[in-house]
Design a protein around this nucleic acid. Structure first.
Lengths: 138, 138
DNA sequence: CTTGAACCTCTAGTCACTAGAGACATTACA
DNA sequence: TGTAATGTCTCTAGTGACTAGAGGTTCAAG
């Protein structure tokens, strides 16, 4: 059994965040010492590692809640879990696509002022003011 | 002179968002009718278009504030504006990089349950529980 | 037994909005 | 000119996923 600070160190999740996860129902309410401090065991550590890993992968608290529920009901959980992971993957791919479009425009904009040619007005500001200067939709 | 609803339609920025931008100081306080309703002109429209475009590109409200300040002080604004755009570009590139790593892992995870081989336990849940199953750091 | 670090709860703040309540203004049409 | 519908006003509170701080209590080391 170890304290919340120890759990924090081992999982690299900050102490207030652990308490927040408990409040949100992601972590079961921890056992307490006679002085009301939380104590955790290996199971708590593993669950928090799971949560942290999923958060790192961009899963929402809500999605993680669903995954945790699936863990507790293993029948058909595999398909449902795969669905959640797949939709997360689709979201990530959509974000990448959008960011790549932005990257193109930003790199065009931020190159504008370096060379010669544009000196009268600021090309960055003009680009932002006038969407028509964009190469494509975004 | 047109109303906030008209401005909203033309810029595709929602009415409460326009009021929010005014409150945040991105938009100058609008003129008012005798009945206290906001009225805008071409200048207001252009500034809001500028803001919207910059938000679409992921600039924070704070960064946009800086850009607007630069617009009002054109001396040396070009270099400063380019710096802001360039740092925005770097952030976007960093995000893309990170998301690509996530994409790899998620696609590995969500493919796990489809084929044969893994049937005992759910591969999605196992992958999330155990970071060691990851190919690389993330 | 004392000291200092760690812990507790609670409230409020972050960012960029979004939603809703309840009241007032404007506009279109009869 | 009257009225009804739509638009607008301010204000407060909610979103997600935390983070920060106040003020008080408990634990572990020496």
């Amino acid at each position: 059994m170890f304290s919340i600070g120890e759990l924090s160190k081992r999982t690299k999740v900050k102490v207030p965040t652990i308490r927040y996860y408990e409040e949100m129902g992601l972590l079961a309410e921890a056992e307490r010492t006679s002085g009301n401090q939380r104590r955790y065991d290996k199971a708590g550590l593993e669950r928090l590692s799971f949560i942290r890993h999923a958060r790192d992968l961009g899963f929402s608290i809500e999605a993680i809640s669903s995954l945790i529920e699936l863990q507790d009901h293993p029948d058909r959980s595999c398909e449902a879990a795969t669905n959640i992971a797949t939709s997360q993957l689709e979201e990530v791919r959509a974000k990448i696509k959008r960011l790549k479009t932005l990257e193109k425009e930003l790199s065009r904009i931020s190159k504008g002022c370096d060379g010669e040619g544009v000196s009268e007005d600021c090309y960055v500001l003009a680009s932002l003011a006038d969407h028509n200067l964009c190469d494509r939709e975004h």
